[in-house]
Computed example of a mutant assay.
Amino acid sequence: MNSPKIHVISLLRSQDRRDNVSLQMAESQLDFTFFDAIDGRVGKPALANDYDYKKRLWLTSGKMPSLGEVGCYASHYSLWLKCIALGHPIVVCEDDIELHETAAVIIEKALEKAEKYGFIRLEAFEHKGMHTKVEQEGEFTLSLLEDNYGGLRAYAISPEAAQRLIKHRWSLPVDCFVGATYIHGQYSYQLSPCLVVDHGKHDSTIQIADNNKTALYRKPTRELYSAYKKIMLTRMYEKKCKELGV
């Protein structure tokens, strides 16, 4: 029996969310499975043993990651490993989404495009970063993204893309890491219409807000790294646009 290609990250205790997403999947006639989210608040995940805290403190953030952030990263990382083990693209969703009325068609197209491009974002981008249309097929538009900040509520990923992502030590929130093409070389693309038509109605149950302040003495190195990141993202984006001829 084939394994479902849709994996929904959800804490075991989040029954209301599970019921809601299960109903939506059933209405769209989609076969899926839940991935029991890793809750960093009940203990440090074994997958986080290789976290680069020095880089985190002095370059990327200035403060230690929250337990919820680590659990969120571990959950997505676990599904990247799952994708590699399965040997085919999968769709990963979080449990606080509202699906598009043509979700089944969008997912089929996303899995197809993941085979070619590796990582396909399935939600709208909320920032004003650069993006360029790469393909137009009927109603579907595929765009190359300069960055992928805040974009892990729903995506399709191939084993090859997952391999690129798992090779590097953790030092960023997982969404920021996926967008950091200069680290791993995996570009992010967005498929429109988006699978996710609404999100954010509920607070995250996996990753909670961190109110800790960054130490001021780490500000200079962080600002230098931020400038480096912006330059590298732009260079990588322009390079790929040239390669694609867009």
Rank of each mutant, 00 (worst) to 15 (best):
Y189Q: 02
M25H: 05
E238I: 11
E27M: 13
L191G: 00
S66T: 05
L142Y: 03
G68A: 04
E94H: 06
I97R: 00
W80L: 11
E108L: 07
C83I: 04
S78H: 10
S3V: 12
D175W: 01
L59M: 13
G129S: 10
K239P: 08
Y237K: 01
E135L: 07
F125K: 02
H131C: 10
I38D: 01
G40V: 03
M64K: 06
M130Y: 11
G68T: 02
G68R: 01
G40S: 06
L144A: 01
K240N: 03
S75M: 03
M130T: 05
N212M: 08
N211E: 14
L145N: 01
N212L: 08
I90L: 13
L172Q: 12
E135G: 04
G179S: 11
I231E: 14
I183Y: 04
P65S: 08
S75V: 05
T205Q: 12
E126H: 11
P89V: 09
E126C: 11
R13W: 10
G245K: 06
G150F: 04
I6N: 03
I208N: 07
R56F: 09
M25I: 12
S158E: 07
P65L: 04
Y149M: 10
E126K: 11
S66F: 03
Y189K: 02
H202G: 06
N212F: 02
P4S: 09
A156T: 06
E238H: 08
C83M: 07
E137D: 15
Y51L: 14
Q15M: 14
E94A: 06
D50W: 06
E135T: 07
I6K: 01
D96Y: 00
R17K: 11
K240H: 04
D210K: 04
E101G: 08
L216D: 15
C241L: 08
Y228N: 13
Y149V: 11
L122R: 00
S158M: 12
I84M: 15
L23F: 09
V42M: 14
G185R: 00
G150C: 11
E135K: 07
K219P: 14
F35I: 05
T33V: 14
A124T: 05
V92Q: 00
S75N: 05
D50I: 09
G40W: 00
R153S: 13
A37P: 09
L152K: 01
A180Y: 01
D39M: 05
V70W: 00
A46T: 15
A162M: 03
C83G: 02
L191K: 00
G150L: 09
G138T: 07
K113M: 12
L244C: 12
Q190L: 11
Y225A: 15
Q24A: 05
A74S: 15
N211I: 13
C194N: 10
Y73F: 12
F125N: 01
V21W: 00
T141Q: 10
M236P: 02
I231V: 15
V134L: 11
R56A: 10
N49V: 08
L12Y: 11
T214L: 08
H202I: 12
L57N: 03
G129Y: 04
M25W: 05
L23D: 12
N2S: 15
S171I: 01
A37M: 08
I231W: 08
K82H: 10
P45T: 09
Q24H: 03
Q29Y: 07
R235Y: 09
H184V: 07
R153K: 13
T102V: 14
